[in-house]
Design a protein around this nucleic acid. Sequence first.
DNA 1: ATATTGACTTGGACCAAGTCCATTGTAGGA
DNA 2: TCCTACAATGGACTTGGTCCAAGTCAATAT
Lengths: 136, 136
Amino acid sequence: MSDLLERLRGRGWRMTPQRRVVAEVLAGEHVHLTADEVLARAAARLPEIARATVYNTLGELVALGEVAEVAIDGRAKRYDPNAHRPHQHLVCSGCAAVRDVRPDGDPLADLPAAERFGFTVLEVEVTYRGLCADCA
Amino acid sequence: MSDLLERLRGRGWRMTPQRRVVAEVLAGEHVHLTADEVLARAAARLPEIARATVYNTLGELVALGEVAEVAIDGRAKRYDPNAHRPHQHLVCSGCAAVRDVRPDGDPLADLPAAERFGFTVLEVEVTYRGLCADCA
DNA sequence: ATATTGACTTGGACCAAGTCCATTGTAGGA
DNA sequence: TCCTACAATGGACTTGGTCCAAGTCAATAT
């Protein structure tokens, strides 16, 4: 779980208690916390951490490519530490649970030239929606 | 363009000047306005229209299935009158232009059973990102 | 070990998007 | 034309997020 910490240190990222707890909170698979959830969990370990620090740190982790920002609903953005592997998301419309998934094939290839309107298409973001086993 | 109005009338939707201008503003292809943009354009025709009315009306159009709500970025939701035909979106990272596109195949079919985690998958939302001809 | 300093953190004000609600207005049927 | 249920209003409120001036501290150089 602390390979994220390792990588950050290796990249010369200045380590502070605040940054460390934010990175620790984000460790793991299928983690998709909102900024406020990150703040709440970080504050449980380090009560004086400021909200702005959480936003700053998340923003840097995103800029470094270590964490992905995902806009699953129109509400708060979520932060996904599983950024090193390309993947998509499966979301439960009932309870908002999120799973990382890897569809077959390359979704980018499914967009024919005639539908590209002269764009240079660089990436694709797929969100599957449905009901999880508990909500069905 | 006013087939939207027709359909709404046909479904017994109570027509008012406010609802009519909102529906008119949304008419057309490749239209993806934010609520505030809808408000601004509606207000150009009907200056006393209230913000809450625009939100209410958009919410009803979405509930009726006549307009789709799309969360293209983490910012304001956009409203897409092209809801009768399933389609996906192609977004320019430079200027935020949005085009409706129809990829080959069914993206839903690309998610193997092993990656469904017991979910009943009902729909899929795909956002292609890149640079348009002008921004490239 | 200590001084230095530029980067990091803080907290509070501010902003944008959206919701809520009590009041007022009106579309459309009798 | 009158009623009344439904719609619109506007202003307060909430949520999610950004900004900034001031204070603090991690890392480096001495």
